[in-house]
Amino acid sequence: MSTPYCCPNCKTNRSRFNIIRQVPQSVKLDPQTGNIIEQYSSGELSPFHMAYKGPEIRVQCGSCGLVEDERTFIKFGQM
């Protein structure tokens, strides 16, 4: 996070952002009620449960509200 950001949507904001740290929680839900039946730790997923592979950090523009992957804001900040 030591690189400059720029919003790819409004193209003017370079200073006000919300950093969103994503913390995935792997669970098995009851299909009828939606209640959590089982919670998995990252190393103990069942064979049919795929681990989360998305970005760890997402960024929201503090001016227009756009939420994107951090790399998008970094690329526009380098221009």
Rank of each mutant, 00 (worst) to 15 (best):
M1K: 10
M1F: 13
S2W: 02
S2D: 12
T3Q: 08
P4A: 09
Y5I: 00
C7D: 01
C7I: 01
P8G: 06
P8R: 02
C10V: 02
C10Q: 09
C10A: 07
K11P: 06
K11Y: 06
T12R: 07
N13M: 04
N13Y: 04
F17G: 03
F17V: 03
N18I: 05
I19F: 10
I20N: 04
I20R: 09
I20T: 03
R21S: 11
P24S: 01
P24Y: 00
Q25E: 12
Q25G: 04
S26N: 10
V27Q: 15
V27R: 15
V27I: 15
K28M: 13
L29G: 02
D30C: 13
D30S: 09
P31N: 03
P31C: 04
Q32H: 06
Q32V: 07
Q32T: 10
T33A: 08
T33E: 01
T33Q: 04
I36M: 03
I36A: 07
Y40I: 03
G43D: 10
E44L: 09
S46N: 11
S46T: 09
F48T: 15
F48Q: 14
M50G: 13
M50F: 11
G54K: 05
G54D: 00
P55A: 07
P55H: 06
P55L: 02
E56W: 07
E56M: 04
I57D: 04
R58C: 10
V59I: 09
V59A: 01
V59L: 01
C61W: 05
G62C: 00
C64P: 12
C64M: 08
G65N: 03
E70I: 13
T72W: 11
T72M: 14
F73H: 03
F73D: 07
I74P: 15
K75P: 03
K75I: 15
F76H: 15
Q78G: 11
M79V: 13
